[in-house]
């Protein structure tokens, strides 16, 4: 229903852009991206953030998200950018927003976006994942990973918006290895638990951790008895050495003297 008259005056302009890294932890890893987006908008209001709005009759807050982790997958490295109509101290904003969100949706870092430094999306082309497979013998996982690596192509199937698609899950994987120790404490206790360290490049269609798990089933019949627990540890630019560069690094670089 669009009434005739447009609102008088415009929205205040953006005077500052901030980039945030946040985590989806524990039970709240089941938050979908849409759920998070709604919760984040409410958190902006609760925290009193001077968010800027788009013009028009139904103004939207200026928020843009970098690629979000799938529902059910934990993450230590989700990113978004917000446009503000008043300047704030990034650390104050981080604390205010973190307090306004439910525990488990944690705002970890906030930096001021450097002008002309490119968008967040331009600085992300790969993700680092950790896959915990409770009740899976690490040796069995090791064998499956080896078979996966040796295959030139591993075809997997997934339902996408376009319907059922078959695609290669192997090419996009730049690193896959069974590790002994996880970086974060696992909640699986006692029973054996295989942990897979995984780096995947962003391709189309996206290869997600569950596609790699489908691939491990396809090449080696690896069938975890309980659902694996997946966490995104990092995302960013993949270097020639196989390292991932934090997308906020470029904003953190000190300004040139002068």
């Amino acid at each position: 229903m669009a009434p005739k008259n447009q609102p008088v005056g415009g929205q205040a302009p953006v005077v500052q852009r901030l980039r945030l890294r946040y985590a989806k932890r524990g039970p709240l890893r089941f938050t979908s991206h849409r759920d998070f987006a709604r919760a984040f908008e409410r958190a902006l209001r609760r925290a009193g953030v001077p968010i800027a709005f788009s013009q028009g009759f139904t103004p939207h807050p200026k928020i843009s998200y970098a690629s979000a982790a799938p529902t059910g997958v934990g993450s230590e490295a989700e990113y978004l950018e917000i446009g503000l109509q008043a300047e704030v101290d990034p650390e104050m904003l981080r604390r205010a927003l973190d307090a306004a969100l439910s525990p488990g949706l944690d705002v970890l870092e906030a930096v001021i976006a450097r002008e002309g430094g490119g968008s967040l999306a331009d600085r992300i082309d790969a993700s680092h994942w950790r896959l915990e497979l409770p009740q899976v013998d690490p040796a069995e996982a090791e064998a499956a990973v080896k078979a996966f690596q040796e295959a030139g192509e591993v075809l997997v199937e997934r339902m996408t918006k376009q319907g059922r698609r078959t695609f290669d899950a192997r090419q996009a994987v730049t690193r896959i290895a069974v590790t002994q120790q996880s970086d974060l404490p696992s909640e699986a206790d006692g029973a054996p638990c295989a942990i897979i360290d995984l780096v995947v490049r962003q391709v189309t269609p996206a290869v997600r951790p569950d596609d790699v798990l489908s691939g491990l089933r396809a090449v080696a019949g690896l069938e975890p008895p309980v659902p694996p627990r997946v966490t995104r540890l990092a995302q960013g630019m993949l270097t020639a050495q196989g390292e991932i560069v934090d997308p906020l690094d470029a904003d953190r670089e000190p300004a040139l003297p002068g």
Binding site: P27, T71, P227
Partner: peptide, 23 residues
Amino acid sequence: VFPQLEQLLPRVSKPIQYVGGEL
């Protein structure tokens, strides 16, 4: 019962509704 429930949540639709954690 969350440790047992957690194993089932990846297999159902809209798992967030069973998780709690509301403000």
